[in-house]
Design a protein around this nucleic acid. Structure first.
Lengths: 231, 231
DNA sequence: CGGAATGTTGACGCTACTCAAGTCCCGTGG
DNA sequence: CCACGGGACTTGAGTAGCGTCAACATTCCG
């Protein structure tokens, strides 16, 4: 389903990636891209398939993951409004290395591979901006991967909850209410563990008064304790 | 100690990174860079320090690692002749994310940050080539990090031995003789485990006739078995 | 109300880390 | 030439963490 989307309010503007394009180039980009609404189960792109386009998130959130030998999934991170997805594969001229799954309803703009590559080749300012962003993204990716591979499930769980508080409940007063629109298995994947271990960890936190449950939601009552555990 | 190094036989040429520079730009690069010999214990750059230069490996091998909370080290990989090191940090304008330790005697050329950035900004063909390389490196890095975090110590050990055979004993007939210039603790770091576990794993392989020992060296007698284990 | 999906809890085993006690190797000095 | 000492390496015992399987509880919906 194609969404009617004006580019004026696009979150990518705020991130400044396309700021250095000329008027004509921007027009070209805008007319070649199209916005598309995704629901869970319909991923914009899949690990191993040819990299035909770059995606720019407009709304919602996407989960980036790789398949594991056992048929499981290893989550690398999530991307939200303004983030670019799939550009590494397009630039390196390889198949996508990961799959992008929407977590709930989401919208992303599809920028055809050739349009993107032409812009990256002809506007040197844009090329350089891309280079900076790619370098930064690469370091941050590595930061997270290494940190997660060193930390244990308890720490990863605490950190993930902290991230959710920062994103969904920032500014409000404690206890912070986390909507948690998806089920335990999904949450376990995002944390990097199994539903069983996640359940034990969460109820362990609850027993110590750090969090509480209310239906499907989680209430974070002691953010300081989470910080201590996550470190 | 500065090495007298002509650029004519530089392995970086073969990799084609600087192929798209103009004659004048290449001259500028060559005159601003200087070759330096490193020995273990003297690293060209350290995690957390300002990124003042890009390094291009001429000879030997460098180990890239991050420090862990407990004071240990997490090895991300190694770089050899023709490889570029530290360019992510320079491009992203951040401190180095890793430390590069020479594994034995090694030589690398230092390219000052400003020289590198000027080239990356003024020659759009070079910028694009860098972009391609960075994108590819980023994917490969992620490949390895994820694969290593999923595999167990046994599999990582088998894979590391296979890599050594491919690099140091390619072409010769089995049993493949691995020089192993460094001690067990270093080897354990490179594999991503402890000396104790490494020792047990290695002697487990030996008991099954997959490898043998001869003084400091390891003889790989059954490469097929290693392949099977590593998968 | 019933049944399926989802979530929780228990039991158990495996992997790999830590600490500690050897054992081997090799260079040094008597 | 041999005894000694120290570093490198190995081996053993104990344990933490977490995944798996299975039983049970709860929730959600038709």
């Amino acid at each position: 389903m194609i969404e009617a989307a004006s580019c004026a309010d696009c979150p990518a503007r705020a991130r400044g990636l396309f700021a250095c394009l000329t008027r004509a180039q921007l027009d070209r980009l805008v007319s070649s891209r199209f916005a598309h609404a995704y629901s869970p189960l319909r991923a914009p792109y899949h690990e191993g398939t040819p990299s035909l386009a770059v995606f720019c998130v407009r709304a919602g959130e996407f989960k980036l993951w790789r398949s594991t030998p056992g048929g499981g999934q290893h989550v690398l991170g999530t991307r939200g409004p303004g983030d670019l997805m799939g550009y590494r594969a397009v630039l390196a001229d390889r198949p996508y290395a990961v799959t992008a799954d929407p977590l709930g309803p989401a919208v992303a703009c599809t920028i055809p591979r050739d349009t993107f590559l032409d812009l990256a080749r002809e506007n040197s300012e844009f090329t350089f901006a891309l280079l900076r962003r790619l370098a930064g993204d690469s370091i941050e990716n590595e930061d997270r991967l290494v940190a997660d591979s060193i930390a244990n499930a308890r720490q990863r769980t605490a950190r993930y909850l902290m991230r959710l508080v920062r994103r969904d409940a920032a500014g409000s007063a404690p206890p912070f209410r986390l909507p948690l629109s998806f089920k335990r298995e999904e949450l376990a994947h995002l944390v990097g563990t199994t539903p069983e271990t996640l359940s034990r960890t969460l109820h362990g936190f609850a027993k110590r008064g750090i969090i509480g449950f209310e239906g499907r939601e989680i209430l974070v009552t002691d953010l300081a304790a989470l910080t201590r555990i996550g470190r």
